[in-house]
Design a binder for these strands. Structure first.
Lengths: 290, 290
DNA sequence: TTGCTCCTCACGTCACGTGAGGTGGC
DNA sequence: TTGCTCCTCACGTCACGTGAGGTGGC
């Protein structure tokens, strides 16, 4: 980076571009598009019609960049330039102030969605699938749907769509992962493909997975397929003096998003358990995650 | 909005588009671009090759929307789709998580810039130009530049550019408005076009305009032009038993940004004052803002 | 036949970026 | 002449949107 010549009152396009952090191309386009012209321009035949910018123009170009950054069109900026008054600029800024606040909220929501998927995917990568674990889990906010009604005519999707379409408080944001909920382990063992409710892992939800001890198991397969997981969970609980008590949640850690083979989707089942008085000494696999 | 037919396992493109909040056009393009295909498609000659989507696809399309929203290209999404693994999706999400955090910060900065200009413009609109007022002002954070050095060869711009180029803590964000600073009223009266320092109205600054009583006056003209403002300020102070004590700040409430006629740029000068023991009863124009 | 949904295909838009080929003044 | 900066002009790109004209099945 060469030192700027402080004696000059004007900057070449290259100097000014570097000064304000904009490409030369963009400055030329702004000139062509009649939204920001150089302070001075060489005449015809003279030094190839060079553009010269004044340092004082930095305020204007910076505001134009703020405006373009928040999505104000060239047309609007051009109109403003030709007809500018403090009132007009104030009105434009006020309008977009609210819009920026909205954008910030959207980005924060996207950040939260990505964080949620990050956790799921991290689990999916770290899991030893055949292992059953017992974990002390913190309270986790969710949105819990209404009771499902799988009668003879109702396919799985009818109830899933009903969950998606029902009004929830807060509004269901389907960008968060959705899972199945059962009131107790017996319902899950009986109908592992028909949750009593659906739930969304939305951290803004007013319902929650209660904190406590959960028995967590995994299996792979297409939606609704549980293989020998119920058997393995039951055996593990019996061998380790644990009693199923409370709800069961399942969630697909991988599905069409990250797994090509649909028979390899990774299902995680978390069942609430309590230790019985007659608990044996702790099994080696029995541990507490932080 | 028609009720969806819950008996169907598939949705038409129109239903699905409305279901997930995306236009039909966009869904077709995603299909054409090979980044998201319908679950089922009519054969040739049969119902015009209609596309049908499954409710379960909502998870995937929602994630694709999250990805496009954070600026992931179609190429990247296509690559992910053809070669997807939990690791790859996790990596992509992690990369963009930081980027989103950066975007949020940028937007918050833009919001702050707009708020600052809003205040200035609001003042500019409400001002009675010939009126001098006395105002109790709160402390206001700014970035204060080094001492200027206007020797015989140095034009105004040389010192202005030096202010812009000097490293400040925090970094000078030229999107905030810049004004002039004088240590006392005498310096301002003597050299109203040559501030002792420049300052930026950056609320992240570590320096500040001290809280206290300020005499505030306005005048119109091109940069450096103060007209009779010094005289009016001096007269007002004398008549109202006020003594100038402390720094003077000037700032252009309107300039090339919002004013077409450069001889009408609106200059605001705020000079720190104290009441003297011999203050007369308060002048009608003498009041406290909020 | 009429109306309906959905289809393809070509073209427009917006705010950029790229890259070829040329000019004036040291 | 050489090298330098800057010039114009035509075209590419990306993720959309629009709108004309057509088809299958009620």
């Amino acid at each position: 980076m060469k030192d700027i010549n402080f004696e000059k009152e004007f900057h070449s396009i290259k100097e000014f571009a570097e000064f304000v952090g904009i490409t030369e191309k963009t400055l030329r386009r702004y000139d062509d598009e009649d939204i920001f012209a150089p302070a001075k321009r060489d005449g015809d035949g003279e030094r190839n019609k060079y553009r010269f910018y004044s340092p004082i123009q930095i305020t204007t170009i910076k505001m134009i960049r703020v405006l373009t950054e928040i999505g104000v069109s060239f047309d609007t900026i051009r109109e403003l330039k030709h007809n500018r008054t403090p009132e007009k600029l104030l009105k434009l800024l006020r309008q977009h102030k609210n819009q920026i606040a909205d954008n910030i909220n959207v980005l924060q929501e996207v950040y939260s969605i990505i964080s949620t998927y990050n956790e799921l995917l991290y689990d999916a990568i770290s899991v030893t699938e055949t292992e059953i674990t017992v974990t002390e889990m913190p309270k986790r906010n969710i949105i819990l749907g209404e009771l499902t009604d799988f009668n003879e005519t109702a396919g799985f999707y009818r109830e899933f769509v009903r969950f998606c379409r029902t009004n929830h408080e807060p509004n269901l944001n389907m960008s968060y992962p959705v899972g199945g909920y059962w009131d107790n382990i017996t319902s899950f063992f009986n109908e592992p493909a028909q949750p009593a409710r659906f739930f969304s892992l939305d951290p803004n939800g007013n319902d929650y997975m209660p904190a406590g001890l959960y028995l967590v198991g995994y299996t792979r397969g297409y939606y609704g397929q549980t293989n020998d997981l119920p058997k393995r969970m039951a055996a593990y609980a019996k061998n380790n003096g644990l009693k199923f008590e409370g709800p069961v949640y399942n969630i697909y850690l991988t599905d069409a998003l990250s797994e090509i083979d649909r028979d390899q989707y990774l299902l995680q089942v978390s069942a609430s358990v309590v230790e019985t008085r007659h608990s044996k000494s702790r099994h080696p696999q029995y541990y507490f995650k932080k």
